[in-house]
Amino acid sequence: MHDLLELAARMGYGARGFVYLSVGLLTLMAAGDFIGEAVGTKGAIAWLAQQPAGRLWLLLVGLGLSAFVTWRLLQAVFDADHEGASRHGLQTRMGQGFSAMGYGFLAFSAFALLIDTPSDPATADIARSREQAETVLSLPFGDWLLAGAGLCILGVGVANISRAWREDFTEYLACSPRTCRRVAPLARAGYLARGLAYVPLAILVTLAGLRAEASDVTTFGSALEAVERQPAGPWILAVTALGFIAFGAFSFIEARFRRIRPPRDLNPLG
């Protein structure tokens, strides 16, 4: 069981790396006007679905992300990284729990595309996001709930930016000091790019709540497109894309070198 859990974790990091590497390359191509629009993680998976052997790609990515969710749950619930119950440890484990939820939704998206692949996934994704926003707005205090969701997205972005500056990304790597020093900048660039990329989406969702307009809600990829339309937007988008590529590369490094210590006793109370 220990070996299987370690294999699942390494597969999960590899799947995450593949997704972000795809996001980065597609976004870089969009910045150079080689393809139509920038994409987020869901958009990258939808793009894979439209390629030769797309269903196989979807299956492999879905299984890999599911493995990563399993590892994240072991970290969050069973303290696989031995973070402890201190304030910092609980914050770290809570972040890992939210990460498990996010990648769980992403894995579900990959499996859903196996069943039904829309002709225009980007448009379908925007329509689905706006339907969900309309549902939230129909609730009591729905405008404040939607604005709060935007602020939560902003919080995720700020957390990624903060992590880029303060975290020691080599702490969990079993590699030589020289190798660790070389790969750490990839992680910092990746988390910084992820954090900054959340900001435009957070602004749009928050404004949608304050205006009570579901039509203002968009997707991660469309928010990046809004950035591209600004002065110097293509350059900003290109730098962001390189950050995504760096994050994907670091995920592959984690798949190879990360210390994986599955808990021997699956007891959340330790």
Rank of each mutant, 00 (worst) to 15 (best):
I161K: 03
G32H: 14
V156S: 12
W57Q: 07
V61G: 01
N160Q: 15
A110M: 06
C152S: 12
G97H: 03
G148H: 10
Y103G: 01
A85N: 11
V61C: 04
R55Y: 07
A159T: 13
S66R: 05
L58F: 02
L145R: 03
Q132G: 09
F105D: 02
V158R: 12
I161S: 06
A100W: 01
T123N: 09
T41V: 11
K42P: 01
W47R: 14
P121N: 05
F78N: 02
W57Y: 13
A100C: 07
G64I: 08
G157I: 11
R93T: 03
L151A: 11
A31Q: 05
A149T: 13
G148V: 11
A67G: 12
D125I: 01
A85P: 08
V39C: 10
P121L: 03
A107F: 02
C152H: 11
D116I: 09
V39D: 02
I161F: 07
F111E: 09
L65Y: 06
I115K: 12
W57D: 01
L56G: 05
M94R: 13
A110S: 15
F141C: 07
L58N: 00
A133T: 01
R163S: 15
R130W: 04
G97S: 06
A46Q: 02
L90R: 14
A38V: 10
G102W: 05
G64D: 11
A38G: 15
A67T: 11
Q51P: 04
